[in-house]
């Protein structure tokens, strides 16, 4: 770009192109600021002293940095407990989801059977089902069998609603696995179970990362299921616990609230920054190859 800027434009159309490029870049950068500044602002504010936050323009840079807000955030709430619950629910859901959708896709796309396209279509319809429609029936069933206030109450619908997209992603990935590999395995005496374990599973790593992460975002952040099925303080997941914290401390201890919000953002942020290539790639190919 620097070379292009330094050279004199030879024709009016080159000049026009250059101006268009600069305008596009400027617009993209402004939107970039809109997309990222609010998140940065949460972290910056979490490092301010309460006096600094109250006294000066809350959007200016802090005059001094402190970690006290984080200490108070942990002291004043059950953040650790919420984290533990969220890890159990998200971990359980994701292991179950990945295993079930990978297996189902294997049966649908590779083993094949009469009516496999119908089964796939029924799964795909689930993509457009709004979660609200299952809240009342699940609430009633849960209270009948005593499952309200349990991890399972959250894991079941989270996996159910994540299955359609995950099955779809695995099915489209298995479409790229070459038949010869499996034929060779069959000639070597592989049955359907060995073929799955020895061939399909090792080849699926990238898709597993995409499926696991994309769903981790939705499951980790879930609010509506937790808000409907969990009342016990000891079973609250992070979004619910954070909402409690905001309700209780939001008006009194601003900076500690910002610290609590920051803490809850960190796990997904870390995973995303480490794996962002694989995740974005998986999303792009999932959506564009369909």
């Amino acid at each position: 770009m620097t070379g292009a800027v330094a050279t004199v434009d030879r024709t009016p159309s080159e000049r026009r192109l250059r101006i268009a490029r600069m305008t596009s870049t400027a617009i993209v950068l402004v939107v970039l600021l809109i997309q990222t500044y609010p998140i940065a602002w949460i972290f910056i504010t979490s490092l301010r002293t309460p006096a600094d936050f109250a006294g000066s323009n809350p959007f200016s840079l802090p005059s001094e940095l402190t970690l006290d807000n984080y200490v108070r955030a942990f002291q004043d709430s059950d953040l650790v407990r919420y984290f533990l619950n969220s890890f159990i629910v998200a971990g359980g859901s994701i292991i179950l989801l990945t295993a079930l959708s990978m297996m189902a896709a294997y049966a649908i796309r590779i083993l094949g059977f009469r009516g496999n396209q119908v089964v796939l279509a029924l799964f795909l319809l689930g993509i457009i089902v709004p979660v609200q429609v299952v809240l009342i029936p699940l609430f009633i069933s849960y209270s009948n069998v005593g499952l309200l206030d349990s991890y399972q109450a959250l894991i079941l619908p989270m996996v159910g609603f994540a299955l359609p997209m995950s099955v779809y992603l695995f099915v489209s990935f298995y479409g790229f696995i070459q038949g010869e590999i499996l034929e060779a395995a069959v000639l070597d005496g592989c049955g359907p179970f060995t073929a799955f374990r020895r061939i399909i599973l090792p080849m699926s790593t990238n898709t597993i990362v995409t499926v696991a992460f994309v769903n981790a975002v939705f499951i980790w952040n879930d609010f509506i299921f937790a808000n409907t099925f969990i009342f016990d303080q000891d079973l609250k997941t992070i979004p619910l616990g954070l909402q409690d914290f905001i309700g209780a401390m939001g008006a009194t201890d601003w900076t500690a609230t910002f610290a609590a919000v920051s803490v809850t953002l960190v796990p997904l942020l870390l995973v995303f920054l480490v794996l962002n290539r694989a995740i974005i790639y998986g999303l792009e190919s999932g959506a564009t190859k369909g």
Partner: peptide, 21 residues
Amino acid sequence: AVTVFLAPAVILYLLAVVMPI
């Protein structure tokens, strides 16, 4: 094999999504 691989996902999907609808 088809049953073993497909059934768990289908059962969970029926329980959590289809039946409640």
